[in-house]
Every structure is written in structure tokens, then in C-alpha cells.
Simulated assay, not measured.
Amino acid sequence: MVSRRSPTARHRRLVAELNRLRKDSGLTRVEVAERIGSTDTTVWRYETGQTRPRPSDVSALTDVYGVTGEARDFLIQLAVEARRRDWWHRHRQAFKPGFDSYIGLEAEASLVRSYEPLVVPGLMQTEPYARAVVEATSVVQTPSTVEETVAVRISRQRLLHGPGDPIHLVAVLDEAVIRRRIGGGGIMTEQLEHLVHLGGLPNVEIRVLPFSAGAHPAMDGPFCLLSFPEPEDPDLLYLEQAASGLLPDAPEHVSRYASMFESLCAMALDQEASAAFIAQMARRFSTP
């Protein structure tokens, strides 16, 4: 069981529970609002995640829904935890829209499945490589914002090493990720050697999708799937674009991408062959 707790993930769980309880009760939002002395708009905002309810608000809702004992205490505790601020909160102005929600959910995930066609995933980037990527892709950012973005990216990597339960990462990298020179030969050598090291960790699996695999289901672009330790929390899909990040919540979308990821794993090199290829490319980049 993952011991990490994230306000964003706690809020997601609370939203799901409040929706379930009202539907099970058979009450409309208007009826619930009347019983707690509020408005149906406020209840809607609670159920859509637009507003994080106070513990006292959740307490009133549990009275309406007839929730008592440990179940009631659990929901109120969720409200307490959901209203706390994530460690990255002070950096949120440097993020593209949607990414703040993603890293808040990533912080409580037990498994990350990532496909990347162009760059090393952020959880596995070295600092010089991360800086080169951010500088190349964030053309409107100031130098200070670049450094802030890099610092957040490196801080996220504590998920791989602890303290607490480390996240399990499975990454499928297109061969282009390994071959594309970013930041110069020295930076690439360091980055690829870092990948080899990470691939030796028990909680990290790195697979290279070779050019020889040809066409594949994920040619539309990168994606990431998050799984959580509690069965009540469904898997989550994250799609990143140049100006924003998207979190489609339709179960059929998540299922489709999960199937795509299985196909990519079947087409990719195994872990041993992937490590050998990455190490070979690291040596090539180190040659003047």
C-alpha cells in the first residue's frame, strides 16, 4: 500500500464519493442543497471538483446521506487532506494548464505507464538534459521560469527513490528518444547512462521501441497512464500538448490507451536488450 498522500488525489476520491452517495440516495442536487442550507450550484461545484468543500460541509452532507461511523470519519478526513497545498503549489504559475493536476495525482500513484516518442520522460531526466528540453520547448519563458520548471521536474523524481513507497515506472521509449541529440554529446551520454542505471532499479522498467517495429498504435503522440493503490480510484490518462495537458476521464479512453500500451510493450525490445542498446548509444555520444 502506497503511503504517499496527495491533496489532488484525495480531492479526486472525495468528488467520486460525493457523487456516488448522492446518486445512491436518490436525491437531486436541489434537494440536497435545501437540506444543507446551500444552493444546487454549490452542490454541483462539489461534485464536479470546481470547489473543494470544507470538512464542515462534508459533515453536513454525510448527515443528509446517512453516513456514520468510520465511513463518515473517512470522508471528513478526505476533505481535510484535499484542502492542503501540494508541495508544488507555489510553482503552479510556471506550469501549462492541466499539468498541476497531473503531478498532484502522480504523487499518489502506485504505477506510471509512459510512452514517449521524442524525449526522455520527466521522471527520468538528468538536470542538464531537463534544462535543454525546457529551454528548447518553452520559448516564451524567462530564465528564472526555466530554472523553476527544471527544479520542479527534478523534485518529482523523489517518487522513484523514496522516502516511502517508490512509484513503479514502466516506460516505453521510441528509438528516436535515444538517438536524438539534446544539449550536446556530453549531456546525452550522461542522460543515457542515467537511464541504464534507472533501468536496474527493481521499480523501473525501460523498454525501447525500435524503428524496425514499424507502424504502431501510438503514432499520434505521447501519453501517460496512472494507476492507484486503492481499487476505488480508477486509472487515469494524461495527454500533453504544447500549450496544455489533458486528463480525459471517460473509462473507454483509458481502456483504449491501456490496450495501446500493452501493444507497445509487445513490440518493444525486452529490458535487457533495451539496456544494451541505450548503453551502446551512450558510448557513441561520448566519442568525439
Rank of each mutant, 00 (worst) to 15 (best):
L247F: 11
V196P: 00
E240P: 02
R156A: 10
R181N: 14
H168L: 10
R158W: 04
D233H: 09
V204T: 07
L195I: 04
G183A: 09
G200T: 04
Q157A: 02
S155M: 07
S244K: 08
L246A: 14
R207H: 15
R180Y: 02
L198S: 04
H197G: 00
E230K: 02
A213F: 05
V204E: 07
V172G: 08
V170A: 13
L201F: 08
E205R: 13
R156G: 11
L160A: 06
A213W: 05
I167T: 15
L159K: 03
Q191R: 05
L226I: 05
V196F: 00
L195C: 05
A258Q: 10
E190T: 14
Q241M: 13
P229V: 09
L201S: 14
A242D: 12
A250Y: 03
C224P: 00
G214Q: 13
I154S: 00
E230G: 00
L237D: 09
F223G: 01
V208D: 06
L209G: 07
R256F: 04
V204N: 05
G162V: 08
T149K: 14
I154T: 02
E252Y: 06
E240M: 02
P163C: 11
L198G: 01
Q241H: 15
G200Y: 01
E240G: 11
V196Y: 02
E190H: 05
P166V: 10
L159P: 05
L237R: 06
S259E: 14
T189W: 01
V204C: 09
S155A: 15
V170D: 15
Q191A: 10
V196K: 01
V150G: 03
R180G: 04
Q191S: 10
G214E: 12
L239A: 13
I187H: 06
L173R: 03
Y257C: 05
P248M: 12
V204P: 02
S155I: 01
H197D: 10
L226T: 02
S259N: 08
L236P: 00
G162M: 09
G164Y: 01
V254N: 00
N203Q: 12
L192A: 09
L237E: 12
G162P: 00
N203D: 06
R179V: 07
G214N: 10
